[in-house]
Write a protein that binds this DNA or RNA. Structure first.
Lengths: 124, 124
DNA sequence: CACTTGTTTCGACATCTGTCAAGTTAGACG
DNA sequence: CGTCTAACTTGACAGATGTCGAAACAAGTG
């Protein structure tokens, strides 16, 4: 069910944005994830899923909260899935979506600016 | 020089994504910022500016690092500025850009998922 | 098997986006 | 003022994106 997933930030991926310039490759890996977050409908979908009690939500419980049609919600879920933020599984009639663990934290870490620069590693 | 800026997350704006579902309004405020981050060129620009020594960079020091034309870089800088992530000022011949303080941290806070749900405020 | 419900895919369409070439504005310097 | 450089704006264009209705697919139920 899960289609092509972008090369995952294996472990941390990159230093925070504000510590050193991102390489074109790093930017190319991160941008699609931020892009997936760059739509109000997708942000709300992600939030509904991320904040759900069991950590997962049935599509049937998502569509009701939006003015958009079923196919449109399905499209946005696919974008979130293919960007590596969500995963899903069919169980009988229903399809459940959940947050891929850790991905949001990695994105948050990239945005973190508490260690602007010089305070990096200087051993002495 | 600074044009129309989106309604700024006054103070925190919203609870983390994973704590409770975003309202349509909150999603509408946040999405344009994530959208601005959703392009590799803009991510690199932002990173170059955020990690720069003095906290600001002259446009003339940015354009060299990209295959894109000057107007294209200018366009991306405008998108970053109008989404509220950057600010700029002209000094003589040159224009300098810098990170709007706090904005990145607010976005990071929205993505933070260390307090999934129930651990919220329950007084007892 | 036919029927119903949940979900995705397909096809179409209007809008938005990234890009560049060409032209314009802003300031510095004679 | 004229000219040079830095940066932005405009106009154009190919390609991506958000949206929907219709059709297809998946599973359960009679």
């Amino acid at each position: 069910m899960t289609k092509q997933i972008l090369p995952l930030l294996d472990s941390g991926c990159c230093a925070p944005l504000a510590r050193e310039p991102l390489s074109p490759q790093q930017a190319g890996t991160l941008a699609p994830m931020f892009k997936a977050l760059g739509d109000p409908v997708r942000l709300r979908l992600l939030s509904m899923i991320a904040s759900a009690a069991g950590g997962e939500v049935c599509v049937c419980d998502l569509t009701g909260g939006f003015a958009q049609s079923g196919p449109t919600i399905s499209h946005h879920l696919r974008v979130l899935r293919e960007s590596g933020l969500l995963d899903c599984e069919r169980r009988g009639t229903w399809v459940f979506y959940w947050l891929r663990p850790g991905v949001l934290d990695q994105l948050a870490a990239v945005l973190d600016s508490t260690q602007p620069r010089e305070a990096v590693g200087a051993p002495a």
